[in-house]
Amino acid sequence: MTSQEHRRIDDLGTLKAIAHPLRMRLYRALFVSRTATASQLADQVDEAVSLVSYHLRKLAEHGLIEEAEAQSADGRERWWQPSSYGFSIRDEDVRAPELAAATAAFGRTVDEQRREMYDRFRDERHTWSEEWRSAAVSSEWLPRLTAPELASLGKELDALLQKYDRRARAAEAAGDTEGRENVAVHLHGFPYRGTA
C-alpha cells in the first residue's frame, strides 16, 4: 500500500466505481491479500479473469488500487495492491442528490456483502475450532450518546482496529503466521428513535 491513510472519497465517479458489487468484492479480497494478480482474484471471486481484469482497471482509474511490484518472475503477470489503507465516505462530502444516491447504493452493496459473510460463518460455524467459535463476537450495545460522543467513539474504535491490524501485519511479515485467519469486524453506530 502506498499510503497508510484512508482515502477520502467525495466524487461521483469513484463512488459509482466502488458501489459495484464485484468491484467491492475485489477491493476487499485485494485488501486482505495485500497484493494479487487478476488470475488470483478471479479464483477467489469465482469470475472470469477477463472480467476481473476489466474491473481492476476501473478501480485503478479511480485511484482505489494501483500496480504493485511484481511478486514473481513472470513478466506477463500484472500485480495490484490497494492504494491506501482503506477509504472513507463522509456525510459532508456527499450531500448533493447524485452523491447521496451513489452513497446509498454503496452502503447497500457493503451491507449485503457483510451479511453474506456473517451468514456464511454461521452456516459453517461447526467447521471452525472451538477456540475460533469461542473467540467470535456478536454483540449489541444501546448507549445514549451525543453526536460528538458517537463521532469520538467511532474514531477510537477505528484507531483500535487499525492498531490490531498493523500489529498482525507486522507479525505476519516477520513470519508469525501460525493460527492467523482473516477476521471481519463489522460495526454500525447510528441514532434511532422509538423502541429497539
Rank of each mutant, 00 (worst) to 15 (best):
Thr2Glu: 12
Ser3Trp: 02
Gln4His: 11
His6Thr: 10
Arg8Thr: 02
Gly13His: 14
Lys16Ile: 07
Lys16Trp: 08
Ile18Cys: 01
Pro21Tyr: 05
Leu22Lys: 07
Leu22Ser: 13
Arg25Val: 06
Leu30Asn: 03
Arg34Asn: 08
Ala36Tyr: 05
Ala36Asn: 04
Thr37Tyr: 05
Thr37Gly: 03
Val45Asn: 02
Asp46Thr: 13
Ser53Ile: 04
Ser53Arg: 14
Ser53Leu: 07
Tyr54Trp: 10
Ala60Asn: 13
His62Gly: 03
Glu66Ser: 13
Glu69Val: 15
Gln71Val: 12
Gln71Glu: 15
Ala73Met: 09
Glu77Thr: 12
Arg78Asp: 04
Gln81Arg: 15
Ser84Leu: 00
Gly86Ser: 03
Arg90Ala: 05
Val94Arg: 00
Arg95Val: 12
Ala96Trp: 01
Pro97Thr: 11
Pro97Glu: 10
Thr103Glu: 01
Gly107Ile: 02
Arg108Val: 07
Arg115Ile: 01
Arg115Glu: 09
Glu124His: 09
Trp132Ser: 04
Val137Ile: 13
Ser139Lys: 13
Leu145Glu: 05
Glu149Lys: 08
Ser152Ile: 00
Glu156His: 10
Leu157Asn: 04
Asp158Gln: 10
Asp158Gly: 08
Leu161Pro: 01
Leu161Ala: 07
Gln162Glu: 12
Asp165Ala: 08
Asp165Lys: 06
Arg167Thr: 13
Ala170Gln: 12
Thr177Arg: 14
Glu178Met: 05
Glu178Lys: 11
Asn182Gly: 05
Val183Thr: 10
Ala184Pro: 00
His186Cys: 07
Tyr192Met: 08
Tyr192Pro: 04
Ala196Trp: 08
